[in-house]
């Protein structure tokens, strides 16, 4: 069973409210919201081995989609969010059929291009998206007896949703179908020779990954109450890349650790200006060169080496 994956979530859900710190609660919410798109990116990049530099677009599609459905059509956010997720999934599935004809560099460039076009679209489709000012007065998730606009209660929603998403993703990658996905990441030719329909599998993963991102975006929109194009640009795609890299690309648990680490390190810096960008860039460089399996794994290896060094002396 992969229920142990829920352990860190249970821990956070239990401990953070006890600490009763509004700062910590809001940081925890950001971690949960970012963890969803990062989880999606990890499925695509880490497991299926397909680079994507435009994932912020799907985060944005989820946010704008759900917000617009709620604002313009008056849908309940509880309905708007799944609808936006479904639309994003379909868009990604369709895009997947063409974009995954590309490989390597070309795929990186193509997804980057898509991300940029989407971010320009968020600004320029003023009639729909409100341009660079964005949308405001987005309703929060209504729940009798609970104000889900408040950090203390939204915290639970965000972390429970994230926990379920991680559980589902864990189920998938541990299942035999997950082996096909990981196999695809290791050798596309090999996978095809075993009857695995590589093109379709890539599209499905991409759609799933986009839907996870959209889920995060929708939660974000209804939590913050207003959105503008700025957080959905290429910068966020790259931030996601850093988070997944810290976690080690191919580790569901690592994603959460990567997001938490990146957020905890850079959140305090955000008030000082753009130091967080420097840190993100430098982190990405250092981790990619020195610990390609992720920071978590590097720490684990380091600890093991340390123990081995100390052991003879101890014994």
């Amino acid at each position: 069973m992969s229920l142990w994956r829920l352990l860190p979530f249970a821990l956070v859900l239990a401990v953070v409210p006890l600490l009763d710190s509004s700062y910590l609660t809001s940081v925890a919410i950001i971690i949960a919201l970012h963890a969803l798109p990062a989880l999606g990116l990890s499925l695509v990049m880490g497991f299926a081995g397909q680079i994507s530099l435009g994932h912020a677009a799907f985060y944005g599609l989820g946010a704008y989609g759900s917000a617009l459905l709620a604002l313009r059509l008056g849908l309940s956010p509880w309905l708007a969010t799944p609808a936006a997720i479904a639309v994003t999934g379909l868009v990604a599935y369709g895009l997947g059929w063409s974009i995954f004809r590309l490989r390597g560099h070309h795929l990186a460039l193509g997804t980057l291009g898509l991300g940029i076009v989407a971010s320009i679209g968020f600004v320029e489709l003023r009639g729909v998206t409100g341009g660079s000012i964005g949308l405001s007065a987005i309703p929060s998730y209504p729940l009798p007896g609970l104000d889900l606009a408040a950090d203390q209660s939204f915290f639970f929603l965000a972390w429970i949703v994230a926990a379920l998403a991680f559980l589902a993703a864990g189920n998938l990658v541990d299942s035999p179908a997950g082996l096909a996905i990981r196999g695809l990441g290791d050798s596309e030719r090999g996978a095809a020779s075993l009857g695995i329909g590589v093109a379709r599998l890539k599209c499905r993963i991409f759609a799933l990954s986009a839907m996870l991102a959209a889920l995060g975006g929708a939660l974000y929109a209804h939590y913050i109450g207003f959105i503008s194009p700025q957080p959905f640009g290429v910068g966020f795609s790259i931030k996601l890349l850093v988070m997944v890299a810290i976690g080690g690309f191919r580790s569901i648990g690592g994603v959460l650790a990567g997001v938490a680490f990146a957020t905890l390190v850079t959140e305090p810096l955000q008030d000082l200006g753009y130091y967080d960008v420097v840190v993100f860039g430098a982190l990405l460089v250092v981790i990619t060169i020195f610990c390609p399996a992720g920071l978590l794994q590097a720490v684990r290896d380091g600890a093991r080496r340390g123990i081995r060094l100390l052991a003879p002396r101890a014994g």
């Binding site: 910068g235 420097v278 860039g281 430098a282 990405l284 990619t288």
Partner: peptide, 12 residues
């Protein structure tokens, strides 16, 4: 990926 990081760091 490293060059992406370098770009980000330079911007920062």
């Amino acid at each position: 990926i490293v060059t992406i990081g370098i770009g980000g760091a330079l911007e920062g």
